[in-house]
Amino acid sequence: MAMGKNKTGIMAAITAAAEAPKDSGSERAHKSLPKGTIGSVRAGLGGIQEIDTSLVLAWGPKDRLDIELTAVNSGEPHGSIQELSASIAESGQQVPVLLRPSKERDGYFEVIYGQRRILACRHLGKPVRALIRTLGDTDALMAKGLENAGRAELSYYERVRFAQAILEQGYSRAEACQALAISKNTLSQLERINRLVPSAVGEAIGAAPDAGRPKWMTLATAFEKAQLTEKHVLDVLSKSTDLDSDVRLDFALQEIGKRGKQERSTEARSPVPGVHIKSGKSGLSVTVKRAGANKKFANWLDQNLDRLIQDSFERFQSENREG
């Protein structure tokens, strides 16, 4: 299905509220729901409705790092939710969310998009203004992706994680491309970053809304080339939890240069021609060239190296005991 045609169809389904007849209460929510259920009736009413936020359930691939819709969100809400709450308290909820009747629980609804608005209204103790539509999983996914793309709300790394979540839930690569309005090549780039940047590191950094592809690709390449380790980066990030996510990403990137300086400071020596020893904080390496006059020695060493190391280790133990 072409993206333009699909977008037209989905948006028509989303905006059909104004034309929906008021007496269409018999419309079915899903094939799994019998006629006359609460979800079916509310879906058939049309227009924007006010829904109790306690009746809204999470649905679909997760598209955000810093918030999560659960039955109960305890404690103070995330900073962005607090800001949105203040805006809604002052000016009202300007844009409705999109819900669909729950397949599993009659009277409940699954959020297709608008998690932040739902959480903000929950924080304020007021109902959320919503459109209720009977979309299947694929159309719901497209609507979720189109809304995110249209409002430009997801950061680059959230798009990385959203793409992966879509694929992990069994959707095809073509459907993932449609949902995110991206090309196959762009999807491959998102997958590469997700594969190379450890999930724990990405979550410790956060959404990093001001960071685009170049920074995340640099971080991914550093992990690929073993210029960074997950443990090291997590140790660094654990000391910067009070900073915003863009600063935390910059801190992680700065460790690449520090690692390089440490490697350049490694001590190198050559006790005999053709043999090079490198000694650093992380390890000791010996290189013997198999070329020219050194070839015979290299071959001999290859045959006797195990014994030489064993003899050296026994000597080390003996001297250590005597000391």
Rank of each mutant, 00 (worst) to 15 (best):
D250H: 08
K296H: 13
A18E: 14
E90I: 03
G4E: 15
Q115W: 11
Q93E: 10
L243D: 04
Q262K: 13
M142T: 06
K281P: 12
A222F: 07
L45G: 12
H123E: 05
V111I: 09
G9K: 03
I81S: 02
G202M: 00
H232P: 10
E191P: 03
K103V: 03
L249K: 01
M217E: 08
L180I: 01
Y156S: 06
K22Y: 08
R100C: 03
S26R: 13
A181M: 13
K239P: 14
A13F: 15
G25K: 14
L305D: 06
D250A: 08
R42G: 04
A13H: 15
N73H: 13
L249F: 04
F316G: 07
D311G: 12
G107H: 00
G79N: 13
V72E: 14
H78A: 09
T218W: 12
D139I: 09
A163E: 03
G150F: 13
D23P: 05
P209M: 07
A200N: 04
R64L: 12
S199E: 15
A207L: 01
T134L: 07
A226M: 15
I309V: 09
S85C: 07
G79E: 14
R117I: 05
L154K: 02
R161I: 08
K231Q: 09
M3N: 10
K126L: 06
Q49F: 06
Q169D: 04
P21H: 08
G9E: 05
W59E: 03
S245V: 05
G79W: 12
A226W: 15
G39T: 02
E230Y: 06
R133V: 04
K35H: 15
K289P: 02
K144P: 11
A149D: 09
T8F: 14
H276M: 15
D246M: 03
A143F: 02
A176R: 00
L84G: 05
A222M: 01
D302Y: 11
A130V: 01
T218H: 11
S240Q: 13
G9T: 05
L119P: 00
D250N: 05
L131T: 07
I10E: 01
R264C: 13
N6V: 12
R259Y: 12
L135H: 01
N185A: 11
G212L: 10
G60H: 03
P96Y: 03
R159P: 10
A130I: 01
D52K: 00
P198N: 04
I309K: 11
I256K: 06
G36E: 08
Q115P: 14
K7P: 04
Q164T: 07
K258Q: 11
E19A: 14
P127C: 01
E175P: 08
F162I: 07
K296T: 07
P61F: 00
L124H: 02
R321L: 13
W59M: 01
S32A: 08
L141H: 00
L154Y: 02
K103H: 03
R269I: 15
M3P: 06
S183M: 04
S54F: 07
W300K: 09
E104T: 10
S80N: 11
T37G: 02
D63W: 06
L237Y: 00
A204L: 00
R259F: 11
E110R: 04
S183W: 00
G292A: 12
S74L: 15
L99V: 08
A43Q: 05
R28T: 11
L65G: 05
E230N: 05
V128S: 02
A86W: 11
A43N: 08
